[in-house]
């Protein structure tokens, strides 16, 4: 055998003496949080190297806010200025959905890479590779929500809820985006390809945003549609945002919206972790 070169680490044999019973049988909560933060750090490194990930969250708020306000403003509310209190919270919710949709596609692409084999072989919490990117994605939601509100203000929107109310709506948008992202994370773990995730995500996103009260008052719709619009969780987020930003009030709708978000996370996060752990 060749000569032993001195290594900076202790010989692995030291660990061989470890009694397997001494090893933890599952990661602790603290370890899970640490591992999630490490995964979030990885995701931010990736974002920095692929700045195109920020195109949608910067261009979309600018484009959609101006476009919808000028197209529908006159027809729905009489003037663009009167439409803004209705549309800005709507756009916020829509932005939350479209930006968090990218989660699934990106995760699917990421999971096909070799590094995920290593993540699976490491003694780390199974949720960390999913929760890490979700946490880093909050940066994107923050940019999108902030820009949407700023564009609205630039167009003449004066939120009636004041600074606190606006901040509340802004925060709710980010929380909702993070929560809904778990639906797409789950899709990313079950679908076979990134294209499939993209397609299914679109099919979920369009009905959820357009069959809501985001752009038009629910009362203007036919009865059967109105019924769906009223149970659509996006409608609750939109109404809650309106209550916060326009009225500065924490209404029951805010409670329903938060409860809905919690329910989405409670259902889809465990589903995502389960299908991720099973996947090759």
């Amino acid at each position: 055998m060749t000569a032993v070169t001195e290594s900076p680490q202790a010989p692995p044999a030291v660990r061989a003496a470890v009694v397997p019973e001494d090893l933890a049988s599952r990661p602790s909560l603290r370890e899970t949080v640490d591992q999630t933060l490490a995964m979030a750090w990885r995701a931010t490194k990736k974002m920095r190297r692929n700045p195109e990930q920020f195109f949608d969250v910067t261009i979309q708020p600018l484009l959609f806010t101006a476009m919808f306000a000028y197209i529908f403003g006159g027809a729905i509310s009489g003037s663009v200025k009167d439409y803004l209190p209705l549309i800005i919270p709507g756009i916020l919710a829509q932005t939350a959905l479209t930006t968090c949709m990218a989660m699934g596609t990106q995760l699917r692409e990421d999971m096909d890479k070799g590094v995920f084999d290593r993540f699976r072989s490491l003694p780390i919490a199974r949720i960390a590779p999913l929760a890490g990117p979700a946490l880093a994605d909050v940066i994107r939601y923050t940019i999108a929500a902030t820009l949407t509100i700023l564009v609205g203000i630039a167009m003449g929107y004066r939120p009636g809820g004041g600074v606190l109310g606006t901040l509340g709506g802004w925060l709710l948008t980010i929380v909702a985006a993070w929560s809904l992202a778990w639906i797409f994370t789950w899709l990313g773990t079950v679908a076979r390809s990134a294209q499939a995730v993209q397609g299914i995500s679109m099919m979920i996103m369009f009905p959820l945003t357009f069959l809501s009260n985001a752009f038009v008052p629910a009362e203007s719709l036919p009865g059967w549609l109105e019924a769906f619009v009223k149970v659509n969780p996006v409608s609750h987020v939109v109404t809650a945002c309106r209550d916060l930003i326009n009225e500065g009030q924490v209404t029951a709708e805010v409670g329903w919206a938060l409860l809905g978000c919690a329910a989405v996370v409670a259902i889809f996060a465990p589903l995502a972790v389960r299908s991720y752990s099973r996947k090759l």
């Binding site: 397997p20 090893l23 933890a24 049988s25 084999d117 072989s121 490491l122 003694p123």
Partner: peptide
């Protein structure tokens, strides 16, 4: 989880 702590792959 214990097995993963004993392995390098």
């Amino acid at each position: 989880h214990r097995v993963r702590q004993l392995l390098g792959v």
